[in-house]
Simulated scan of single mutants.
Amino acid sequence: MASKKGGLGKGMNSLFGANNVSKEAVEHTKIVTKEQEATEQVVKLPLEDVQPNPFQPRHHFDDNKLQELAASITENGVLTPIIVRQNDSKFEIIAGERRVRASKLASLKEISAIVRQVDDDTMAALALIENLQRDDLDAIEEAQAFDALMKRLDMTQAEIASKVGKDRATVANLLRLLKLPESVQNLIQNGDLSMGQARALLGLKKKTQIEKVAEIVVSRSLNVRQVENLIKQMNEGTPEVRNKEVSPFVLALSNQLEEKFGTKVKVNAGNKGNGKIEINYVSNEDLSRILALLDIEVD
Rank of each mutant, 00 (worst) to 15 (best):
Q197S: 11
A158M: 09
S183T: 02
I188S: 10
E211L: 03
M234K: 08
P181E: 04
Q185P: 00
E236A: 13
I188P: 08
E228S: 12
S247T: 07
R225N: 03
A169T: 04
E258M: 04
F249T: 14
A169M: 09
S221F: 05
V184R: 05
V164L: 08
E240Y: 13
L204M: 06
M234C: 01
G196W: 09
V227H: 06
D167C: 08
P181R: 00
G191W: 05
E182D: 13
S247N: 14
T156K: 10
G237K: 11
Q226M: 09
Q226P: 10
A169L: 02
V246C: 05
V217L: 06
E240V: 05
P239E: 03
G196A: 00
A200M: 04
N229Q: 09
V224C: 02
R152T: 15
G191Y: 04
T263L: 04
L175R: 14
K212G: 00
S194P: 02
P248L: 06
N229W: 04
A198R: 08
E259I: 11
L204Q: 08
E228K: 03
S194Y: 07
G165E: 05
L201K: 02
R199W: 00
E236L: 13
F261Q: 04
Q256W: 12
T170E: 11
E240L: 14
L180C: 02
P239N: 07
G237F: 10
Q233F: 12
V267Y: 12
G262N: 08
E236H: 08
K264H: 12
E215H: 09
E240D: 14
A269Q: 15
L178A: 10
K232A: 03
M234Y: 08
Q209V: 08
E182P: 01
R242H: 15
A169S: 15
A252C: 14
K212A: 11
T238Y: 10
V171F: 11
K232S: 14
S247R: 09
S221Y: 12
G203D: 15
M195W: 09
L222V: 08
M195C: 07
T156S: 15
Q226K: 12
L257R: 07
Q233E: 13
R242Y: 12
K166D: 01
P248Q: 08
